[in-house]
């Protein structure tokens, strides 16, 4: 952003004020993350600076404490299962949605996207009521199904948007040359939309891995996920181990989402090259 040469003194003032303001807002955005990470290395159980010394004791607690580790394992297991289910269901649906001539498309899309729109507390209450009748409360399979519902819209949206840039004459060409539908999918469509599918899978994973409200409602102590453990940890007695757990989670989700961003840019580049 450059100041034009014809700027009045007022404009010059506004220009610099905007820059300073922007700097402050960006600082505000990043400050909680920047503040909490160093605190996780505090030698003393306080949340203030300056820190009396550095130590890894909270990480030690996080990685050796049975409660935290079992929560991590359950979260990873659930998220992995959700990723497989949501990616499979979501990709199929996206392939159907991108076909010309799908009847009732707005209604179908509305229903498929709805779990992303409805406030999560409502989803939690509704699923609790439903599961109570089916005996799915406090089961891993119940949690996996609930998280899959929440995760599929992200897969549908991501894969559909990748497919919107897909040149359908390619698959017609493959069919015209005699390839059966499955071969067309695996050899022509899949390689092109794979980045979108992987992004969708990562979104599904993150959705389940970070989800707390539904988990609070429909799980018991035995299916305690990592976010649930954090939530109750904060509510009951706050220990600095929370800061270590938060730091691990920040690094984890940022890594995954950078992956998504790189994939998105790659597919955008490919699309740009083909059109």
């Amino acid at each position: 952003m450059k100041l034009p040469s014809y700027a009045t003194p007022f404009e010059t003032f506004v220009y610099y004020a905007t820059l300073v303001f922007t700097g402050l807002v960006l600082l505000f955005l990043i400050s909680p993350i920047i503040a909490i990470m160093p605190l996780s290395f505090n030698a003393e159980p306080y949340f203030s600076y300056p820190m009396p010394g550095l130590s890894l004791r909270w990480y030690d607690d996080f990685f050796t404490n049975e409660r935290w580790m079992s929560a991590v394992k359950i979260s990873l297991l659930v998220a992995a299962l959700v990723t497989v289910l949501a990616t499979a269901l979501g990709t199929l649906a996206a392939l159907g949605l991108s076909r010309a001539g799908l009847p009732f498309k707005p209604v179908i899309l509305g229903v498929l996207i709805s779990p992303m729109i409805v406030p999560v507390i409502i989803t939690a209450v509704a699923i609790y009521l439903f599961y109570a009748q089916l005996g799915l409360i406090a089961t891993i399979s119940g949690l996996v199904l609930a998280h899959t519902v929440l995760a599929t819209p992200f897969v549908v949206v991501t894969v559909t948007s990748t497919l919107s840039g897909f040149d359908h004459s390619l698959s017609r060409a493959a069919s015209g040359l005699g390839a059966p539908p499955l071969t067309v999918f695996t050899n022509v469509i899949l390689p092109i939309i794979l980045p979108g599918i992987i992004s969708g899978a990562l979104f599904a994973f993150v959705t389940s891995f970070d989800e707390v409200v539904v988990a609070l409602f429909i799980t018991s102590a035995e299916q305690r996920t990592l976010p649930k453990q954090m939530f109750s940890g904060i509510r009951e007695q706050i220990s600095p181990t929370i800061t270590a757990a938060a730091t691990v989670l920040i690094l984890f989700s940022v890594t995954l989402l950078i992956g998504i961003e790189l994939l998105r840019r790659r597919s955008e580049r490919l699309r740009g090259a083909s059109s």
Binding site: G90, I108, V111, P115, F130, A146, T152
Partner: peptide, 26 residues
């Protein structure tokens, strides 16, 4: 059309049973 519907059907049914019905129940 039928093929497109078949592709969408699994997820549609899944979301309908495990999301729409619970919401209606609520």
């Amino acid at each position: 059309k039928l093929r497109a519907l078949m592709l969408v059907a699994p997820l549609f049914l899944f979301v309908f049973i495990s999301f729409v019905i619970p919401i209606v129940l609520m």
